[in-house]
Design a binder for these strands. Structure first.
Length: 928
RNA sequence: GCGGAUGUGGCGUAAUUGGUAGCCGCACUAGACUUAGGAUCUAGCGCCUUCGGGCAUGGGGGUUCGAGUCCCUCCAUCCGCACCA
């Protein structure tokens, strides 16, 4: 009987399903372990071999933890709302729900084939009404909340509170004493005025405080997709999906006040197990900078411009002020004679797309407004310029320009010949004074002689004393746009009454996505939901027509798995208190500033509301690397219908590189006949061979259809079986590393499985397991591997644990060991990696019908202790000989034996030993 | 420009975290068993060598009895952010 993966895997996958082996219960006394994969978007292309990399790793951890006696939550689901299904619907008219259902079925079939131990009873789909009901519910909680920045709440970091409490505060004393995260333009009012406001005004004011709010914002508008996008969905001025140009546009949008949580999102990074580089990405995205605000009085007007700076110490070097061209005060700040020039410049800057503006950051442009402002510390009268290097959206949109210590200000001043005053000692004679940014202050009045840090402190104090400034912290992170003018997303549970948004009733959830005839915007430019017939709240009020973005559903799904079928609450509090944080979260870095940021934000909100009992959702994050495609190339002469083998290029003239489907290439050798079938136009082509074969070139590229290099896991399962695929993907290298897919090494792990099989069956297929007691050598081979494999899984070093299995099987093979006691433990050890073959052999061993049910709790092998060690003996750092010592020999005794050994004395040449260094279980070094 | 990481045989990688560098696998070489092998088994496999040994972890320097590992410096590659004041 040969190892036959196809038969074994079919058998066991069937049994696992029938017996519901992987069903997980919330009510056990076992300790819990929650291991989660980032759920996939079910694309039409199905899985390729890159997807399962992380899933295999998490499945190994899940199975391993079950062996160790944990109650393991290891679920899977689908992030099934999103753009591709909708784009496909626009092109083909097919309903996104249908394509999505079809794609999910394909994904599930492929996942099950690999043998993952998911509890499918807990599956979630973000596009299912019984799921998005709760996404809508969380939206409503956000709408009904405001953020109290308070002095004492949550250690001074503030927390979200119910909007009703805000109304109470307003009724008591207006908003003067309320410290809340809100729009800056809320006017002050006292209790009497609040009570006197109309209901409408009250609603408008409250909207400016809510954690999700409607607002006129400059947003990323993508005309090709017909929707707005969040900042993290825009890369280099183009949409991440599809790569279409993105414009800036002022639109009314639903926003999420993630900025209220900036400081907490930043600080709590210290408490989570993310990699340093990923934390750094999030820190950059939050972009905290500590600095100061400073007011520059406008000459001849009763008006001040506030700038934000991190270098208030250099204020004496501020020789002009720059203002963003989009700034709303520009008309007021322009002198009559500069009116025309400024207007022209502002218009030009506006029409320049975001992308153009980024493309030439080196080009300097700006225009003098004709207005002067007063430097508040030096009293100097300086020019005010409009310049597009100043961003309207960051800080105050106004910058004090210090050409002597800021690179951009320096370029600008050079270009327009504006004055430059050096304020740091040693920069006076430098061609580019901005290269030295810190040092003793000069030319700076009361700051002269101070070092940078002290100067910042004193300058800030002085500004406060003069009433012209204050210390200020700025964050780069913006509030997140929450509207998408698309169909295939969660409807926003809001209707409009006289232009004011109102929530629908909780018992009216879910607000079902209505059917529409076409998935395009309406002729009047409204979102697709505008097409829904008779879709009105209580038959008369307009619903919100935009839908939620893709990240809404994925921002809380990890909680739903804990109690996936609950129709009373989003998840039962007791279930969440049992499962708590995700112990291990596995996924790619592409979600570093999107999903991982938004879900932390929502989670913290739920925490503030007392709905969950822990402030961070993920304990440890493992970023698996990407598997790139390995493309194969053939080389065709440009002038002839002739293909040249890789090694012979250059002997025939210029060649063109064509990609060849990797299915037609085995170990770099091209199947010429199949290639001709694939490209019939080359049916008569001549192939110049080397050693009788056509050798292809290769290169590493992203896996994609157009490059003919996609490898489907089904193909690998067909040829080698799921266990080989699982082992091989783990064996490929460290899980975090990016690596090209290559089948070059897959034979190795396949051989390993066959070799393991042969420990149980002889060549003729006879069962050959013996009951005899294993000898010491056999135990040692096994326990070495057990120890290593166990440590490696704990450290998520899967490649080295696979190596340990291979060593073990090699050793047992050469010892001809087929003793039951050894083989049983070997199976247990390998089972998380190759569950099918191990269960099959385990069943044959006759101990149980299922490893998962029978033996987990008692797997706690006692590692065999080494009873003697071989020490290399080095003299002055050079290894000269080796000696054996009993394991429990005291170091003094080792030292004595070493020094009296003839072999050592030979090298010591009669000199006395200065010292003897004994590294236990390692080596002995004698220094003379 | 700023930030993060990485650099070891022909290739993918390993090294008990400062202790004999190269585990495991691929590829390759030789042999065995075979009608056959893209099956299996055995042996070899960093480089040089006068067979004593010598040299090797991107380059150079340092700390140490001892450095792939720690420190300094230069070089190269990958990733992230980028007019953020």
């Amino acid at each position: 009987m040969e190892y036959n993966p196809a038969e074994i895997e079919r058998k066991w996958q069937g049994r696992w399903a029938d017996r519901q082996v992987y069903k997980t219960y919330n009510n056990t006394t076992k300790p819990k372990y929650y291991v989660l994969d980032m759920f996939p978007y079910p694309s039409g292309a199905g899985l390729h071999v890159g997807h399962p990399l992380g899933y295999i790793a998490s499945d190994i951890v899940a199975r391993f933890k079950r062996l160790k006696g944990f109650n393991v939550l290891h679920p899977m689901g689908f992030d099934s709302f999103g753009l591709p299904a909708e784009q496909y619907a626009i092109e083909t008219g097919q309903h996104p729900a249908l394509t999505t259902a079809k794609n999910i079925a394909t994904f599930k079939r492929q996942l099950n084939r690999i043998g993952f131990s998911y509890d499918w009873d807990r599956e979630v789909q973000t596009s299912a009404p019984d799921y998005y009901k709760w996404t809508q519910w969380i939206f409503m909680q956000l709408f009904n909340a405001w953020y109290d920045l308070g002095h004492s709440a949550n250690n001074g970091l503030g927390k979200a509170r119910d909007i009703v409490e805000l109304v109470e505060l307003f009724e008591q004393s207006g908003n003067v004493n309320v410290r809340a995260a809100c729009h800056e333009d809320v006017p002050h009012f006292d209790a009497a005025r609040w009570l006197a406001f109309s209901e409408r005004t009250k609603a408008e004011i409250l909207l400016k405080y809510r954690l999700t709010f409607l607002s006129e914002e400059v947003v990323n508008w993508c005309p090709a997709l017909g929707t707005v996008l969040a900042n993290d969905e825009v890369k280099d001025g183009r949409s991440e999906r599809g790569g279409y140009p993105v414009e800036r546009k002022l639109m009314q949008q639903w926003m999420m006040r993630i900025t209220a949580y900036s400081e907490r999102l930043l600080q709590d990074l210290e408490t989570v197990g993310f990699t340093e580089s990923l934390k750094e990405m999030q820190r950059n995205w939050i972009g905290k900078s500590m600095g100061a605000e400073l007011d520059f009085k406008v000459v001849g007007q009763d008006l001040s411009l506030t700038v934000f700076t991190t270098r208030i110490d250099t204020t004496f070097g501020a020789t002009f002020v720059s203002i963003a061209p989009e700034h709303e005060w520009i008309p007021r700040l322009t002198s009559p004679d500069q009116q025309a020039a400024v207007a022209e410049y502002v218009l030009k800057a506006k029409n320049r797309s975001e992308r153009d503006r980024m493309a030439d950051v080196k080009t300097v442009s700006g225009v003098f407004t004709g207005t002067y402002v007063i430097n508040p510390l030096s009293g100097e009268k300086i020019q005010l310029w409009a310049a597009d290097y100043v961003l309207a959206g960051y800080g105050t949109g106004v910058v004090m320009a210090v050409p002597s210590s800021d690179d951009r200000d320096f370029r600008f001043a050079k270009h327009y010949q504006l004055p430059i005053v050096c304020v740091i000692e040693g920069t006076e004679n430098m061609a580019d004074p901005t290269e030295k940014k810190k040092g003793k202050m000069i030319n700076s009045g009361f700051l002269n002689g101070l070092e940078t840090a002290d100067a910042i402190q004193l300058a800030t104090q002085k500004a406060v004393a003069l009433g012209v400034g204050k210390a200020r912290i700025n964050y780069r992170m913006r509030d997140a746009v929450f509207s998408r003018q698309r169909y295939w997303g969660e409807p926003v549970p809001v209707y409009f009454k006289e232009g004011i948004p109102h929530l629908i009733q909780v018992d009216e959830l879910p607000l079902i996505l209505p059917e529409i005839d076409e998935f395009k915007p309406t002729p009047t430019g409204e979102p697709p939901l505008g097409r829904a017939v008779n879709w009105k709240y209580q038959g008369q009020y307009e619903y919100e027509l935009s839908t939620m973005p893709g990240w809404a559903g994925s921002s809380w799904y990890f909680l739903r798995y804990m109690d996936a079928r609950n129709d009373q609450v989003f998840a039962d509090r007791a279930a969440m208190d049992y499962w708590r944080e995700v112990d291990l979260y596995v996924g790619g870095t592409e979600h570093a500033v999107g999903h991982l940021m938004y879900s932390r934000f929502w989670h913290k909100f739920l925490y503030d509301k007392g709905l969950v009992g822990f402030p961070e959702p993920y304990k440890k994050l493992l970023n698996q690397g990407k598997i790139q495609g390995r493309s194969s190339f053939v080389y065709k002469l440009k002038t002839e219908n002739k293909f040249i083998s890789k090694g012979l290029r250059g002997q025939f003239g210029e060649v063109a590189e064509l990609s060849a489907p990797i299915s037609l290439v085995q170990l770099d050798v091209l199947d010429i006949e199949e290639y001709k079938k694939f490209r019939p136009e080359f049916i008569d082509a001549e192939f110049v061979l080397e050693n009788g074969q056509y050798i292809c070139g290769d290169g590493v590229e992203k896996m994609s259809k157009s490059k003919h290099n996609v490898v489907n896991p089904d193909e690998v399962c067909d040829e080698y079986g799921a266990d080989t695929l699982r082992l091989y993907e783990m064996f490929l290298g460290p899980i975090e590393a990016d690596k090209p897919w290559s089948t070059h090494g897959i034979e190795g792990v396949y051989r390993f499985l066959k070799k393991m099989w042969r420990l149980f069956y002889d060549e003729k297929g006879n069962w050959q397991v013996k009951e005899a007691d294993p000898n010491k050598e056999e135990w040692k081979a096994l326990h070495k591997a057990l120890k290593k494999a166990e440590e490696d899984v704990e450290h998520l070093s899967f490649n080295t644990s696979v190596s340990a299995f291979m060593v073990c099987v090699n050793e047992l093979s050469s010892l001809k060991c087929n003793k039951r006691a050894i083989l049983a433990d070997l199976l247990v050890m390998v089972s998380p990696y190759a569950p099918h073959i191990t269960e099959e052999l385990w069943e044959q061993l006759g101990h149980a019908t299922s490893i998962t049910q029978a033996i987990f709790p008692q797997w706690n092998p006692v590692h065999l202790v080494e009873d003697s060690f071989e020490y290399p003996i080095s003299i002055n750092g050079k290894v000269r000989t080796k000696m054996d010592f009993a394991a429990d020999l005291p170091v003094q005794e080792i030292e004595k034996q070493v020094l009296t050994s003839p072999a050592v004395q030979k090298y010591m040449e009669g000199k006395p030993a200065k010292k003897v260094i004994i590294v236990p279980k390692r080596m002995v070094n004698v220094v003379i």
